[in-house]
Design a protein around this nucleic acid. Structure first.
Lengths: 145, 145
DNA sequence: CTCTTTAATTATCATTTGATAACAAAATCG
DNA sequence: CGATTTTGTTATCAAATGATAATTAAAGAG
């Protein structure tokens, strides 16, 4: 297969992934939470506890802006800042109970939509999908590269 | 495999796809083009010719805002509006020569980075990746669903 | 102990984006 | 034909985001 076509295939694929994730996550964002704030919460939910710098790096948001958004989120009681004993400059961020509940609910909705999306797949097909995810994750979409 | 773990795997995967596409496309956006404008140009490049409504639908941008951004893009001579004979309300949008050249250059850069990313894969692995893309595209990330 | 680096904050500003209302022109429907 | 729907435009406003400079405090290096 020639590289041109391969590249085109990848573009089409990533576009589809973006569209589908948009569909899956559409409307799950609670009122009063901006898109950027939601994406930060999602990141915290998956990787907690995290530092401010980690959020800034991984989500490509400048430190001042990360700090600002995080301040708003803590003011809304959705996450908590914990001091780090070994390094008193750092702060570990994690979801508060309210924040955790909120994200659980969001993930639940997304999960339902996802299951609905693959509900017609047989067990073998699911295994196939599973293997395909492994392949792509390890050989193409390995972000540590 | 239980659904919980499967879902988590999907979340991890889509996150990785987002991160990698961010890396691949980072810095290719020409000066003076906003992120939204670039994403519109990308869509036009792949699907041209398209109508304003198609852009609005596919990119989830309201018609007034699509119209506004497209106006800016035509003013920059990056795309052209063509009247449609059969329906004089409609306009087909396509890239101008300058716009096409710009996007070719951007895609070239992205392509290079992509090839670099898979350069260590053997022919069999590429075939494997290719099949994996097909599987996921058809069974999970089929946006027409 | 000083100098430098890292982590985070605050303040401020410009730009981008999203949302809404009001409009016009062409197509379609009954 | 008249009413309605579709397609696109213009204007305007508010909110979200991005970018920068200046500052604090702690850690680490020499």
């Amino acid at each position: 297969m020639d590289k041109e076509a391969f590249f085109h295939k990848l573009v089409t694929f990533t576009t589809a992934v973006h569209e589908v994730t948009f569909d899956l996550t559409k409307d799950v964002r609670p009122e009063g939470i901006t898109p950027v704030q939601y994406s930060i919460l999602e990141y915290i939910a998956v990787s907690q506890p995290v530092t401010l710098s980690q959020i800034s790096d991984c989500k490509n948001i400048s430190m001042p802006n990360t700090s600002r958004e995080l301040k708003k989120l803590t003011e809304k009681n959705l996450c908590e800042k914990l001091d780090v004993a070994e390094d008193r400059r750092k702060q570990m961020i994690r979801l508060s109970d309210a924040g955790q509940a909120m994200m659980n609910k969001a993930f639940e909705q997304i999960g339902e939509r996802f299951l609905d999306r693959i509900k017609d797949s047989s067990t073998e097909e699911l295994e196939e999908i599973n293997r395909a995810l492994d392949v792509l994750q390890s050989k193409v979409f390995n972000s540590g590269k």
